[in-house]
Design a protein around this nucleic acid. Structure first.
Lengths: 193, 193
DNA sequence: CTCGCTCTAGACCGATTGGTCTAGGTTCGG
DNA sequence: CCGAACCTAGACCAATCGGTCTAGAGCGAG
């Protein structure tokens, strides 16, 4: 099916362009025209692949990020929470270093504009929920109490989101790697933390 | 000067409306028309008080938040870092609970759309810088090494920004108070953390 | 070959965007 | 009481917004 191949390519190109641009300027900061220009696609293609238009595209991007994160959790499921957090943190860091691939800051960006659209808000909320849940499960497997596991999962998520945001805003990747190290320690059973 | 009084009132009303709306939907998500409607001001007033238009208004709001944060640091300068962080965290939490007064999530929102405008980006960067600097100074006063103080200041800032964002996105104020408690511990000299 | 379906292509639309500009109060100092 | 300064008020503008719609290119199946 060469038709399908072309389809996938265009669809993917649209999502990649959207990811890059939304990350830079947020949902409302980017016009459809610009996405199409970057993706080198005509308007018809966008509304063919994403009948709901701009929101539909943004939701698809969020879901894609969510599933990528879930894959990372699955790939690291056999590790203890500190190792898992370190590995996932490093993977996300790699995404951020490769131009435009920053997942963290995109979710944060959409979260910041949360009251925009119910569907988009729901997608971001779902992504946060599944990520927190995976983190919590890992911590509980390590022996943390349910309450402790939930709190620490929230802390780790907030830390990553905040660090992604601030380090992006200030052009200081350093902060993100510091945050990874700290998040790892938050998950360790030894020490007061 | 009753003219000045009217002036101040309109200017303030514009900034308050902008703060509330930008926080909800970000810089690009809010139109000037809506700000004017909420502030009950005509267009002419906006461009009189903020000749640079929308960006000028947003920068003023960011600077206002920055100065409010600096006032909090000044008011808590005599406390050790953990107490200072707890107090400031609680104050910010109060802002967030009062409708529309969330400072953290607004900076985060603008940071997320950072590539929008150089002036806005600079204002947010400056606010982050002064806040981190105040935090670092407090930690160093407590005896932390310069490197440790800088790292921990960054962690605390990222934690607050991330927690403000995620808790706002998910409607879970709980996470923010958990983050405050954690941030306090990050600043404590006792324990491994 | 031709039919039919998927996808591309872009002209076109009304609504809304941020911003400019001219008038019209209002409130001072003198 | 009057002119100048300050501020309000909103009509108006080009540009852009997200979205719809028709036309046709390209393909595999029969």
């Amino acid at each position: 099916m060469s038709a399908l191949a072309a389809d996938v390519a265009t669809r993917t190109r649209l999502m990649e362009a959207a990811l890059i641009l939304f990350r830079q300027r947020g949902f409302h900061g980017v016009g459809i025209a610009e996405i199409l220009r970057v993706a080198r696609a005509p308007k018809g293609s966008l509304y063919h692949h994403f009948p709901g238009g701009k929101v539909d595209l943004a939701v698809a991007v969020v879901q894609n990020i969510e599933s990528r994160l879930q894959q990372l959790f699955a790939a690291n499921a056999s590790f203890a929470a500190p190792i898992l957090v370190r590995n996932i943190g490093n993977s996300v860091w790699q995404w951020m270093r490769r131009a435009g691939g920053d997942a963290c800051a995109l979710l944060a960006s959409f979260a910041a504009e949360g009251d925009t659209d119910p569907a988009l808000r729901a997608a971001v909320g779902h992504a946060y929920r599944t990520t927190t849940e995976s983190l919590r499960a890992s911590l509980q497997r390590d022996g943390w109490s349910p309450g402790q596991a939930r709190d620490r999962a929230g802390i780790v998520l907030a830390l990553f989101e905040g660090a992604g945001l601030v380090s992006h805003a200030r052009g200081e990747p350093r902060l993100f790697s510091t945050a990874i190290r700290h998040a790892v320690r938050v998950c360790e059973r030894e020490g007061t933390f």
